[in-house]
Amino acid sequence: MALVNLQNVTYKYPLTKTPALQNINLQIKEGEFVAVVGANGAGKSTLCYTLAGFAPHFFKGEMSGSIEVAGKESSKSTLDEWVLNVGLAFQNPFNQISGAKYTVFEEIAFGLENIGVPRDEMKDRVNDALALTGITDLADRSPYSLSGGQQQRVALTSILVMQPKLLVLDEPTSQMDPIGTREVFSVIRKMAEGGMTVVMVEHKMEWIAQFADRVIALKDGSILLEGKPGEVLTSDVLAENGFGISRYTSTAREAKKQGLWKKEKLPVTLDEAVEGFKK
């Protein structure tokens, strides 16, 4: 059974005329890693907020259709129940620091304190989560003294530690260097293999191609294209609609016109490009 089930979801923020999401139908299996791509204003963040329950519970506005996660219906739940199943981390790490804690360790424990996890279990879970995302050495630092990339890791860890069934991430690596990005992607992949379902908004196509199971391309609040990363990210439809595409894809597309790319399928990653050009 699908963990996430969206049926005809349309959502309008308060005081706006055009809906931010239109007629979204989406099913996601347990343990699936889904990447969401799209231009600014395509509804990526709104989709995240919808899955995480903040639209409409926090933002108000008009929601129609049915949103089901882990067998619960969004319209029949309250936000504080909903967040037990769905974790959300978003782009700006600075605003995700609670401000109530003085060290990274306390910061990560904040969510567990709120939902009433016993102290011994809390400490174990925080230590495990710190080790998982590789920030054990930051445990005693003040979260405010960290760099943007480190803060993003703290924000991600603070949500991972709560062990949600569905993890929703809105550009969680925007301030990280390539090494940090790779590490975070492999951690998220590992979580997905362990049974956590992941929905992630991301612009870094090469990484999506390597790690995600499925890609959803959003345009003007609707799903434009959906499928395996290799297919969606190299599709002509994406290029025609002004999506950001991997430089390897656009290079190979040009090369194909000149007769230099022999394969049928276009590459997304460096490895695929190298292999294709060798032939």
């Binding site: 903040f54 304190e113 709120n114 009433g116």
Partner: peptide
């Protein structure tokens, strides 16, 4: 604007949860 984002962030971490809170430190 920041206040709104911070509200979302702490809400996502169960700030308004009705269960009895625990504390990291004894």
């Amino acid at each position: 604007v920041e206040v709104e984002e911070r509200a979302i962030a702490i809400e996502a971490r169960g700030f308004t949860s009705k269960s009895i809170k625990t504390s990291l430190y004894e």
